[in-house]
Design a protein around this nucleic acid. Structure first.
Lengths: 332, 332
DNA sequence: TCTAACAATGTACACGCTTACATTTTCACG
DNA sequence: CGTGAAAATGTAAGCGTGTACATTGTTAGA
């Protein structure tokens, strides 16, 4: 296996009988180049397998076309299913995703510092893996784009904020309309921003009916914890609605409830969050509050493509409801 | 938000009263530098937030510390759960993963060509997303590392090959020992290399008992197809063992079998592949043939860290069995 | 035919770092 | 105290592009 280095623009220039500047112009769609020359250069380049060196290129125009994606882990479908779409969109635009997986990584700062070394143009904070301030501090010369449901008041950032208030209200209205009165929220990690938000949205929606809900704080986002906590709380509290911090816990809870002889969608309604694809299996069809991944990705891309001089901009994206069997017959 | 560019090594040199070469040496662990100077430079660098520009660095030593990871999609846990570990290992070594998601991407060649532009040091073909030849052709100056279960005879590549023959044999022996005789394999995509391999391993294991199995070729790796095909085939063939091309289908099949009144692990044994975490839920505990992600990642890292002059090397990694309830009581 | 304006290309330097080589400093030892 | 080797640092030439500016070629209008 011979590892030959590709040729450079000067070498190709020699072969084409032009200067390296012309090579550069051929590849950068410069209108100053004669179309025929362009064609000739590109043909020759293709023939010899020449492609401009992105390192050298970004060294002097300081645009790397690299986008750092800061996530927790790709092993979690709730994150990965949206991420996959975003990566796809980036690739369509010939932007290169640099993935930073922060879960299990003690020193996230170090991780980001290394990434910043590559002169990334944009940083997308795709999960709550790191704080906005840390990221701002480290990625000084990149534009930071935050995707979160945490309200970042007055921060003047580029951000796409998820809002599930409407979706949550729809579900609550529907369930209250079914005559349900006893709501319980099973938390994943009560201290997490996303969990706090979700509880707040539920509280608001219930309050409009003059109602409240109880919180069980012992979950950890896993199937097992959903199962275990559901067994305990169903015996103790006897709710007719169980809202779970994520779909995995909702599925675990459903299995537990079934085991206890409850009829899902009738005796007990179950609601999940995230809308992961497995919430829609026949075995456990979970009504869930889902972030619209396509809309989010589009908004993020829009922020990424904004000219660097443009002022910070905020998008608010509304979550949607996936009606499934765990809340009985769907409305309308 | 002020986007100030960081300072350069010459500027820092000026501040430190040294030359830019000394700065470079301080950051590259060059033994030729006096420890105290090194400390002084690093302290000053930290103070001013200086970090060397990776683009400029790799431009002249042609080592980018970038690793291209060619995968299908991160949305599929079977891929993502192993990938997550590999990314973690890379990050520990200060190597940057450049993710190429090929599923849904018509022109994978183009994707790879762009990535190659960034002078990646290594390319890991982590799934069957693209052919080895295409990758070799495009990433001329990087070393290619292939992770697959497809035997690449005589290709003289760096590769980590999965072998499930022993694991498969263990399962088959166990099931035959339980008195089971009628084996059916539900395929995901019969044309895929991985599926062909898995069928071959099963064929071999059964052959040693003088037995064979039937193949149902209508699956597509989804829960739904597992469910649907299982309903059809269980009525038609009445097997006592159903081997599925992946865990999702196995779970679907289990739901179908349960619906038909079969007792899983007794009337019917079900076997999956991939060992995704959700194969271990209480609701559907599936015995599965699992690639040891840790071992695979270690092997890949070892190949990545091999000096560029080293000759190609092959690792064979044995899959392991996760005994669950879908095959009845575990052996021993 | 001459000139001005424009189109197309070439020239040369900058981007921020590494590194071979040159130079200076240090230090041990006679 | 002088000498030479070793240690530490400085100098300068790239690495492969993009791009401002200079240069050449072309065409229109008078």
């Amino acid at each position: 296996m011979i590892r030959r280095k590709g040729l450079t623009s000067v070498e190709l220039a020699k072969l084409a009988g032009v200067s390296s500047a012309t090579i550069s112009r051929a590849f950068s769609n410069d209108p100053a180049i004669k179309p025929e020359t362009r064609e000739r250069v590109l043909a020759l380049a293709a023939e010899h397998g020449f492609r401009p060196n992105a390192m050298a290129r970004s060294l002097n125009n300081s645009r790397s076309r690299l986008v750092a994606l800061v996530v927790n882990t790709v092993a979690n479908p709730a994150e990965a299913e949206g991420l996959d779409l975003l990566i796809h969109r980036l690739q369509e635009r010939e932007l290169m995703p640099l993935l930073l997986c922060c879960a299990n990584h003690e020193d996230r700062g170090h991780l980001m510092r290394i990434a910043s070394t590559y002169q990334v143009d944009h940083v997308v904070l795709y999960s709550d893996a790191v704080s906005v301030d840390d990221a701002l501090d480290i990625f000084r010369s990149a534009t930071l784009i935050v995707a979160s449901s945490e309200p970042l008041e007055g921060r003047d950032l580029f951000d796409v904020r998820l809002d599930a208030s409407a979706a949550t209200a729809q579900i609550v209205d529907h369930l209250v309309g079914q005559g349900r009165r006893h709501f319980v929220y099973l938390s994943g990690r009560a201290s997490s921003h996303i969990d706090k938000q979700r509880m707040r949205w539920f509280a608001d929606a219930l309050e409009r009916h003059g109602m409240a809900f109880e919180i069980v704080e012992h979950g950890d986002y896993s199937y097992e914890s959903g199962y275990k906590e559901a067994v305990l709380l169903l015996r103790r509290l006897r709710p007719d609605v169980l809202v779970c911090a994520n779909d995995l816990m909702a599925i675990g809870a459903q299995d537990a409830a079934t085991l206890l002889g409850l009829k899902i969608g009738a005796d007990l309604a179950i609601v999940g969050h995230d809308g992961v694809s497995l919430s829609n299996w026949d075995s456990h069809s979970i009504t869930t509050v889902m972030p619209p991944h396509g809309v989010i990705s589009d908004a993020l891309i829009e922020l990424i493509e904004r000219p660097p001089t443009a002022p910070p901009e905020q998008h608010v994206v509304n979550c949607i409801v996936r009606w499934r069997q765990s809340t009985g017959p769907a409305p309308r």
